[in-house]
Design a protein around this nucleic acid. Structure first.
Lengths: 236, 236
DNA sequence: TTTTGTAATTGACGATCATCAAAATCTTGG
DNA sequence: CCAAGATTTTGATGATCGTCAATTACAAAA
């Protein structure tokens, strides 16, 4: 079997060993997976694949943060998804054998794992359970999108921006006394694309969020009053 | 094999015969499918299943229009999806073996087809290709959601409402001279849930849409100037 | 360090939307 | 038919957002 221990796996926190889409597979396929296994480290800003690219691999985010973005005909673009460690990306392209519909780009130093496309297909052929787990990941993606649609329809832009900051703090924040702080991995423009407003509006939302006293914003440096095990979000 | 001819199939336009998730299956499974096959006719307003229900079947919309709605804790709800003929619903519940997360309700007289859950599972077990096609439907759902997210971020509420009317006219409109007309199958409240605004705003949007001269709105009676093979949408 | 280009903020103003209230319209049961 | 309830529309007002323009802050290169 593939290495199941956390420490010794070359990939770290990754769907190739934990909550894996590949495990368990028939033993005859383990060598195929091992042979096709690829690891890639990305620096902040580096692309993993571009829109309309044809490398139909399933990637798993091992570390860092990957942004999935679609460009529109009019030159604008929408940030469709932030992929956190443990999540897989590129499965649409793999399952449908079509070019990527989004561009994937690391927002911070990141690591992704993948299996060569030919080997991945071979394993899926012989292991229907892998397909079941891939479908399960699709459902997760549907759930994420549903939450986003509901949030867009029911909560204010200010609240949604706060929620994004909160989520990022959970994964990227560093504690200093009673504060959490981080370098915001997203530009104002990225945030605007994410919640569906203009960049100027994001600036003004930051001003208003700051006025509530929980966040302190200065450029990309964000501080948050850390009140563990307590709801941060209130009436916004 | 299952009946592949359009006319004689009990289900009409339906994923059980055309672009089917079940076809082709091994011949041994055909009798299972035939045995478990169910058809159900719904009157306007009639529910197919409720949120948190546990009937984990995959339904295919054969005729009509089904609304999928999730209720929130605060009593509000969001219309997550309009399911048109040929589309399948309930696959999330089926694939994940979990209760439905949305309520399904017919908006007009409708027909749905399904296969008894036990029989469906049996067929999926023995036919990985069915699972592949189910995954493909998941991807379609993801694509629909992505389009909705993009539309919410890039186009105006007025434009989105117009697009919804246009789509409904395509499937429910009846031609009279150079006009298409229909009974709008959605309430103002439904439309508001769909585009993420208040019902009063929908009323005012109708006023503004009407002013553009393409639509005529009177309660639920909608008329549209039919200009075939021409883009209706302009700068909104 | 200075320069230079990009990112972010601020200001002003018009457009759009939410909210609350009231009126009008439609629907349904008697 | 009428009456009662639900749906839809309209009005008024404050909040929020988009847009255009100008300014400030930041970062990379000379």
């Amino acid at each position: 079997m593939l290495d199941q221990s956390n420490r010794s796996h070359p990939c770290g926190n990754c769907a190739f060993y934990k909550d894996s889409i590949w495990q368990p597979v028939s033993s005859s396929c383990v060598s195929v997976l091992s042979r096709g296994f690829l690891r890639r480290d990305l620096t902040a800003g580096q692309p993993l694949y571009y829109q309309d690219d044809d490398n139909r691999g399933v990637f798993c985010v091992s570390k860092g943060l990957i942004a999935l973005r679609t460009q529109h005909h009019d030159g604008t673009s929408t940030l469709m998804r932030l992929a956190y460690p443990g999540e897989i990306i590129g499965f649409r392209s793999f399952l449908e054998s079509r070019p990527h519909r989004t561009e994937a780009r690391a927002l911070v130093g990141s690591r992704v794992c993948t299996v060569a496309q030919r080997d991945a297909r071979h394993v899926v052929q012989g292991n229907p359970s892998v397909l079941t787990r891939l479908a399960s990941r699709c459902i997760k993606e549907i759930d994420r999108n549903h939450e986003r649609i509901i949030a867009a329809a029911t909560t204010s832009n200010k609240q949604r921006l706060s929620d994004i900051l909160l989520r990022l703090m959970e994964t990227h924040g560093e504690r200093t006394g009673q504060f959490l702080h981080m370098q915001l991995p997203l530009s104002r423009s990225d945030l605007a694309d994410l919640i569906g407003v203009q960049t100027e509006t994001v600036s003004r939302l930051f001003t208003r969020i700051q006025a509530d006293g929980i966040f302190r914003v200065s450029g990309r440096e964000i501080q948050m009053l850390s009140v563990p095990s307590n709801k941060q979000s209130a009436n916004m």
